[in-house]
Design a protein around this nucleic acid. Structure first.
Lengths: 151, 151
DNA sequence: ATATGTATATCGTGACACGATATTGCTCAT
DNA sequence: ATGAGCAATATCGTGTCACGATATACATAT
């Protein structure tokens, strides 16, 4: 028992990072559940979001989707396969460069995506203060981050 | 050719959400790579972080870890198994309640964790402005989020 | 002491991301 | 133009990991 009420201690950075990741995880969990309830696999949701949210002037290819999702090309191909199979996405060969596949969100996909966007915006509004709070703490304590001894 | 320079359009919310998730993914990717380079599976890193970053006065159990990582209990058990096997974590039975397992990060685990904390703080410092920027945009546009038509 | 609940553990299954490799189409130097 | 090299996508086999369902051990209330 006789410990300090809430030792800020030298591992304050660890605590803040843990808190940040916890909030982040909660958001991601919310997002995954929302997607599933809307009938989408979480990753499909992300794919649709990146395809629909890309600048209009650019060709949305598999490689683009892969980079945006932080995936390898082949993983993106499989994800696109599944999404096309379920009528959420449309894949057409590029006319100028027949190697490329151009991706487009179908009407069905846009409908689901629109519904998800609303709830996500709400959730992010609630989450924002806690996230930015943790971020400020981290940047504040980042400088003295070298006193991380293993005791 | 003749399209507006960068149509803000009605799907501005989608664009902002996409950008937010992209930045988020980049951070997560950075974190995963950093963990792997340090010899940890990304999820092990998160486990160690939540165990080490928990308030001192509380007993860190499997259930706590599961909730913090957004996992089911059994997944947390398996994750703990692997981490204990690799000498990163210590699992001891609770004296007061023998059902519970108390988790503690080993010296080895703390060493790796400390190294990772530093680089993460740096990365988050760079990322913070873009993340908070996107968050502000979202909260700003959250109210008019109902004009999401599928065209 | 039994019944109900709680914390952790085990086992089989499925989804998915990946590495390695293949295929098709572009591009550029000569 | 044409073959060599490069770029974009596709295929296949593999391993990891989270999960649901279930089991076990312990606690608590009546």
């Amino acid at each position: 028992m006789g410990n300090q009420p809430a030792t800020p201690g030298p591992d304050l950075l660890l605590k803040t990072l843990a808190e940040f990741r916890y909030e982040l995880r909660r958001f991601l969990l919310f997002s995954e559940c929302a997607a599933l309830e809307a009938g989408l696999q979480p990753q499909q949701h992300q794919l649709l979001l990146q395809v629909a949210g890309a600048p209009e002037n650019m060709a949305v290819t598999i490689a683009y989707a892969a980079e945006r999702l932080g995936l390898k090309h082949n993983s993106a191909v499989e994800l696109v396969d599944r999404s096309v199979r379920e009528g959420l996405l449309e894949r057409t060969a590029d006319v100028n460069d027949k190697r490329r596949a151009i991706l487009r969100v179908t009407r069905k996909g846009k409908l689901v995506l629109g519904r998800l966007a609303g709830s996500h915006a709400e959730e992010l509004n609630e989450l924002a203060p806690r996230l930015t709070g943790a971020l400020k703490h981290i940047s504040f304590n980042a400088h003295r981050s070298n006193n991380v001894e293993a005791r």
